[in-house]
Simulated assay, not measured.
Amino acid sequence: MFVKLYPENPNEKEIHKIVDVLRNGGIVIYPTDTIYGIGCDINNAKAVEKVARIKDINLKKANLSFICYDLSHISDFTKPLNNHVFKLMKKHLPGPYTFILPANSNVPKLFKNNKKTIGIRVPDNNIIRELVKELGNPILSTSVRDEDDVIEYTTDPELIYEKFADLVDVVIDGGYGDNEPSTIIDCTSDELEVVRYGKGEIEL
């Protein structure tokens, strides 16, 4: 299924249809405020494993992230945040950032690597946030990469559909994506650290 949605005002009927697909273990490719992502409902183990196969990643070793609707949603899955981290996230979210945080017991086992951490995103994109809100659970977030040596990320949703149509259930066309990933900030120790500089600028 190839669905055109507009970030300013995503069509509610289409959002409901896509959420039904997610609830039934479907895989969806969606726009964010950076690159296109591929994901599923984090509570559906089979779907998470399918995403891992498509991306050829090892779930035990991978640093997986998921997308929450807002800050209060994040606190359902992380250990209590210190004041500095909370203020930093409040200032920068929604936005092109991934915050690595200590996971709590609400995070499905599949997501917990040996470090018991989780990457959290709240993208500045209404399409994916409305999907998360309607679903009621976070959505797995991993980037759609390109095999091309020069172009790391595919930005054209129609090309993404051509490539992934047989592997996923829905590709959302939310316009051209970016080709720069999110900035990753590790907040798991007292010293905050930028692990990857991406689209988002940040001062720790």
Rank of each mutant, 00 (worst) to 15 (best):
N82P: 09
N83A: 01
N83Q: 12
N83M: 08
H84P: 03
F86W: 15
K87P: 00
K87D: 14
M89N: 05
M89Y: 11
M89P: 07
M89F: 10
K90Y: 11
K90Q: 14
L93R: 04
P94F: 10
G95K: 04
G95D: 10
G95E: 10
G95H: 07
G95Q: 02
P96A: 13
P96F: 05
P96W: 07
Y97F: 15
I100S: 02
I100C: 02
L101F: 01
A103H: 05
N104Y: 04
N104A: 11
S105A: 06
S105N: 13
S105R: 05
S105G: 01
N106R: 14
N106P: 09
N106H: 15
N106A: 13
V107T: 05
P108C: 06
K109W: 07
L110E: 11
L110P: 00
K112D: 09
K112W: 08
K112N: 13
N113D: 13
K115V: 03
K115R: 11
K116A: 06
T117N: 07
G119N: 05
I120Q: 01
R121A: 00
P123I: 12
D124M: 09
D124E: 12
N126V: 00
I127P: 08
I128V: 15
R129H: 01
R129N: 07
E130C: 04
E130I: 00
E130L: 09
L131D: 07
L131N: 09
V132D: 03
K133E: 13
E134N: 15
E134C: 11
L135S: 12
L135M: 14
G136Q: 13
G136I: 13
N137C: 06
N137L: 02
P138I: 08
I139R: 05
I139K: 09
I139W: 12
L140V: 03
L140F: 02
T142S: 11
T142R: 11
V144D: 04
V144N: 04
V144W: 06
V144I: 12
R145V: 15
